[in-house]
Amino acid sequence: MYNGLNWNFGHIVDRRFNPLLITFLLFGLTSLAFAADKHAPSKEIAWSKLQGLGDIEYFQLKNTKPNKTKHPYHIFVRLPDEYNQSEKVYYPTLYLLDGGTNFPLFAAYYSYLRAMEDVPALIIVGISYGNNDWRKGNDRSHDFTVTTIEREFWGGAQIFEQFLSDRLMPSIQEKYRVDSHKQVLFGQSLGGQFALYTSMYGDAPFFAVIASNPALHRNLDYFKQGMKKRDMRPKVYVSIAEFDDPTYKEPTLNWVEYWQKQNVEWEYNFDNLKGHNHLSASPVALRNGLKWIFNK
């Protein structure tokens, strides 16, 4: 009968109690556990090993305006590789709405754009809500939009723009060497609506805005009003994806057609992106928009 292991172990422990052998067994088990643990996933993420993301910094910032969001904004900053080479150089800065998705996407993509000299050295700033749930503080539907009778919670664009111009942009300029005359905003979908709002009716000191597939389907008439007079209006790049949903595409085409007929001093570029849909167009819109803005 085979009962050697159980009997021997019991015999050793219960009858003879060999301390040296027990120590040896415990050491062996610990070594096996340690060896197995070396292959277990680490709870600490080695961000530096994702070299395409570059040098990333993070802080939180709250809006102090009335009717503000209750949750802080999560601000991520990617510095250009050249940043520490000279303290005399100030950099154009790209602000990304929906930073929770767009920042990791474009912070890595930027390294390719720089390698091919498609864009200048940039400071990239991502503005994130930290989640996709409006119940947990994702207020994009409020922050990025003007009013509409179809959605009572829309209409926070003015307050959000004040947060950008009064809180975030000064904070970034205080912390980093920003070329204050070359600050660019990127927005996709509802973020694209906000990009148009700040250029047409706002005050934030952006040099240019990029609006990728702006969603104007619930408040198109608002964006056909006369523009606010400004000493320096931001340049506007607007992209429309070939296969964008008609719900978004048709109002944007209507808006483009309307403003092309108006006598407005406005430097703009309307771009049709073939083969793309509402979301796949974002990287192309960013690249094309930045190349146009900086004449690359």
Rank of each mutant, 00 (worst) to 15 (best):
Y2K: 15
Y2G: 10
G4K: 15
N6Q: 11
F9G: 02
G10I: 08
H11F: 09
R15W: 01
L21Q: 15
L26C: 13
L29S: 07
T30C: 02
S31P: 00
L32H: 02
L32P: 00
A35C: 02
K38C: 03
H39E: 09
P41D: 13
S42G: 05
E44W: 06
W47I: 14
W47Y: 12
L50V: 10
L53G: 02
K65G: 04
P66Y: 12
K68E: 14
H74N: 15
P80L: 12
L94Y: 03
L96G: 07
L97A: 10
D98H: 03
D98K: 00
G99A: 02
F103K: 07
A108Y: 04
S111M: 01
Y112T: 07
L113S: 04
A115I: 02
P120W: 02
I123D: 11
V125T: 07
V125F: 00
I127T: 04
S128M: 06
D133G: 02
R135A: 04
N138V: 03
R140D: 13
D143Y: 07
T145A: 08
I149D: 11
I149Y: 07
E150D: 05
R151T: 02
G155V: 04
Q158G: 01
F160N: 04
Q162N: 11
L164A: 04
S165F: 01
D166W: 06
R167S: 12
L168Q: 13
P170R: 14
S171L: 08
R177Q: 09
H181G: 04
G191C: 10
G191P: 09
Q193G: 04
Q193N: 05
Q193E: 15
Y197H: 14
M200G: 05
Y201K: 03
G202E: 02
G202W: 06
G202C: 01
D203R: 15
F206I: 07
A215Y: 07
F223G: 13
R230W: 03
R230I: 06
P234H: 12
K235R: 15
S239G: 14
S239P: 08
I240Q: 14
E242Y: 01
D245M: 06
E250P: 00
L253S: 01
V256M: 15
K261L: 09
N263P: 00
V264E: 15
V264T: 14
H276D: 15
L279N: 15
A281D: 07
A281E: 10
A285E: 07
L286E: 00
R287K: 15
I293G: 06
I293K: 13
I293M: 11
F294L: 09
K296W: 01
